[in-house]
Design a binder for these strands. Structure first.
Lengths: 208, 208, 208, 208
DNA sequence: GATGAATGAGCGTTCATTCAT
DNA sequence: GATGAATGAACGCTCATTCAT
């Protein structure tokens, strides 16, 4: 993300912040955002409560830093995956696969995020924008663009606007990520995608 | 639910509890679960904070009673709506329509519930079970039964188990209820259902 | 001060507030404003920390209530005393005597106030005005008026403006009150006044 | 005070301490004693917070060192000024003039000192003694001696003990210094002294 | 049953001070 | 000697809950 930090001091600062973030994330996961106290986080992290305030200006700020970190990564992964094909519908499929993989690899994170944020779709978008995230909006724009192209190519139905289709995708994907995050043991992601993609493309009536 | 309360005392107790619930709900809606204090709820209700503790054992309990009441109503409405047809697929469609209507008519409730509860699908189910709700499970059972019948009649694809289809429905429906709750002004429910039902049945590829 | 409180509840509330004020004052006296903590005040008062926040909105507010109470009383006593004569110079003398008496009878209060407030004269006036006190300003106005009358009657020197004379009085009186507050055992107030009045009227050169 | 520091090391130490004191003073003046934090002082000084603890054992100690420095200077100036005449009353007048000048030239310092210390007269004396200051006591002794001489020469009234007269002077002078410190723009010191000296010598009744 | 004043544990946050480097 | 990241005790304040009336 920041490949050349200005100098040694800044690099150390950033590294410590990351370490604290890792530890805080774990603690928040254990108890949930509202329930966990700064003293608990500190004591589980093995440092003093004051220490966090050298790196994050409040409990809320600490939490947002955790969210930010993952969201940025998620959007980067997804975007990279979508570049794996030129076919717009296949781009969408690859993006979803990336999201599922990410969800599976970051189960704990989602477990917290899902309980701490008003994480329903609409609310989440608003929240992310408030937190200065533009990635999600960009992501949506790109996704809608692909859907439109797919419509032009006759790969996707044209009687529903691309924006509505995107919303539908958002909803379904997000819910399945949640499922991956909450279910233990981890299900087979490829298999899961096969089913979800089947439902997304064919609905519950039309089938293979 | 309890058509014959044991005696006058119990009947009075239940009536008062309902009145308190009405008032508390309004107050919680106004400020949100975490933000509102018991003194605020009491003062808006026009009674003393202590009074609530004669009817509910904690703030959390009070909140859950509010959720319960609506959930029960929601399940009753949905079930009643599904009886409007003998065709299993049409039963599902009518059920969804009922859910949408309910969501639209109880926007405020959902706005609170969605921010106060870990309301994602899986989490919600767990929560509802913890809270002693069996309705949702029963609902699912009934819904799965209809889906299976629809599969047998060739109305619904057979390559995906009815349980998975139900989960898919759950996810999509819940998300659209959220959308109805969060969006202002209230969208046209019939039109919304047409789109969602189109996506549910036909997916994003096959069209009408 | 408030001879007919609206009703029983308000009367009880006011009485409790006064009792808490008494206790808090004692505790603040013991440790000083900055040093004393709300828990200390509470524990010395024999109540819980939260209780104070039912009557005063912050530590600062509690402190100001203590100051206000005494300042109001002080100004009332002084004013009443000044009515004891028609001669403007004698009015001034009687006012000073009242201040001294008050200072002597409220030693503890002054000991706190003098350490907690930026109690130097100028700063004090500003502070009192910020706190919504107009009494001191009114007092000054009345005092200056008397000095002007005394000047007209040839009782007081005319080469210095009445405002400057008043400032001089303020300074000297306040310092002597401090002396009375800080010295133990309590000196003879009448004797003290005799000396101070001698200095005020005659300076260090002219004598009786 | 310490004209021959034992050795180079001590001399360096003392020099550094002075430099830190200069910087800390500026920072304290900027924010006030209670408000300013050690990190602020350090960052404005351009050194690390820890550094101060090599020279001063606490924040309080640092503050007292600042006070001490000024007090010592004040007493030296005053004493020097008093040597400007052989007439004991004129000595007093010259001393007061020196105090006023000093107050005027060190407005910022007094502004801090007056809000940070329990600066009323008595309290200040006690404080200064606690801090190891003997200068003020010496000053008083010298001042009282002059007053006594003036009494013997018939220059000053004899019905009031020299100690009481000195206290009176202290009070009046201190208050006028405060006035000089708090008022902006700086008043004419000579004119101020004329008025104060008039009041000190002649009181409010006898005049020029 | 209803009250509401009182409770007090526990919160997020600050900042003078320390000590390993 | 100088550093500054880390400390952690202590702060003012909140609010779900209780219980004497």
């Amino acid at each position: 993300m920041d490949p050349q930090p200005a100098n040694l001091r800044d690099r150390l600062h950033a590294a410590t912040a990351q370490a604290l973030l890792d530890a805080a994330e774990k603690a928040m996961l254990k108890y949930g955002y509202d329930k966990v106290t700064m003293q608990q986080i500190a004591s589980e992290t093995g440092c003093a409560p004051g220490t966090f305030y050298l790196y994050f200006k409040s409990k809320q700020d600490l939490f947002e830093a955790i969210i930010n970190r993952h969201m940025t990564t998620l959007f980067e992964c997804t975007r990279a995956a979508m570049d794996g094909s030129d076919n717009p519908l296949e781009k969408i499929r690859l993006g979803i696969l990336a999201c599922f993989r990410f969800g599976q690899e970051n189960k704990l994170f989602f477990q917290v995020a899902l309980t701490a944020l008003p994480m329903r779709n609409r609310a989440l978008r608003v929240k992310l924008l408030e937190m200065g995230h533009t990635e999600h909006a960009e992501m949506s724009r790109y996704s809608i663009e692909q859907l439109r192209k797919a419509q032009e190519l006759g790969l996707v139905r044209k009687d529903i606007p691309a924006e509505t289709l995107d919303e539908f995708l958002d909803v379904v994907i997000f819910s399945f990520i949640e499922q991956l995050a909450m279910v233990d043991p981890v299900p087979d992601v490829q298999e899961k995608l096969r089913v979800v993609w089947g439902l997304i493309t064919g609905g519950i009536v039309g089938g293979a």
